[in-house]
Write a protein that binds this DNA or RNA. Structure first.
Length: 230
DNA sequence: CCAGACGTTGTT
DNA sequence: GTCTGG
DNA sequence: CCAGACGTTGTT
DNA sequence: GTCTGG
């Protein structure tokens, strides 16, 4: 599963790599991005844009963002396209979640050991996501809250040693297809991603400080030892 | 996702 | 033990 | 026809 | 938004 991740890349770098237009000035470097916080995503409408949305899907028909809470931070890629509450988003509102790594916790008895995963060689990775806009309030109090969920899938090495789910990573070659509004059958693209050569990852054991969302600095991704999972 | 807060009753 | 907040 | 439910994840 | 129940 994926409830915490990192994104510390230049906005312009992301825009160039994704061939997207920026609607934000910068991407704030984050080393412990958590549910309910705003995060950069790329979507495609008339043009491809990078903007901010809340991590944790708030379906449009939700009573409130508070009611949705952090319930839908992740959705199983296997079923999302056919579940009635999410099918519409999966078909027409897919997004790329911009990141450079993610955390998973390994349960060792009563202890929980966090690991940081990142692409070998570093750089940008994109998670498959779906998004929606929740609107509420009346008159001048009206609010418009974009939000997203990260799709999850069965883990590949080295995640499989640590946890039994992982975020679905869209390889660079399939990003266009994932975002394309013309591709309305989400199942097809998901299958294509799962057939594709996976993005190679490496991982290191990191400090349990990452557990607390109050901590958010580069020390969180510093390896605790030399052991490098691949 | 994890961490941390929450938690009663009656009475004045 | 469960809910809430980030 | 309308109203109301639906929908996650993980873990044991 | 879509499906199900009545």
């Amino acid at each position: 599963m994926c409830g915490r991740y990192t994104v510390a890349i230049q906005a312009q770098e992301a825009a160039d790599e994704l061939r997207a237009v920026l609607t934000i000035d910068a991407i704030e470097p984050r080393f412990n991005l958590a549910p309910t916080e705003d995060a950069p995503i790329a979507i495609e409408r008339e043009e491809r844009r990078i903007g901010l949305a809340r991590f944790g899907l708030v379906p449009a028909e939700s009573e409130s963002p508070k009611a949705a809470g952090a319930r839908w931070i992740n959705l199983r890629a296997e079923g999302v396209a056919t579940q009635r509450a999410f099918a519409e988003s999966a078909s027409r509102r897919r997004c790329l979640v911009i990141a450079d790594g993610f955390y998973e916790w390994k349960r060792e008895g009563t202890k929980k050991q966090p690991y940081h995963f990142r692409p070998v060689g570093g750089g940008l990775i994109t998670f498959a996501g779906i998004w929606d806009i929740w609107q509420g309030g009346v008159g001048d109090e009206t609010k418009r809250i974009p939000s997203f969920a990260i799709l999850t899938t069965k883990p590949i090495a080295p995640v499989a040693d640590i946890h039994d789910r992982m975020p679905m990573i869209v390889p660079p070659a399939l990003r266009d297809r994932w975002l394309s509004p013309d591709e309305q059958d989400a199942r097809e693209v998901i299958r294509a991603i799962q057939r594709a050569e996976p993005v190679a990852l490496e991982a290191f054991k990191v400090s349990t400080k990452v557990g607390s969302v109050a901590n958010d600095d580069p020390s969180l991704i510093v390896p605790l030892d030399d052991e490098r999972l691949r």
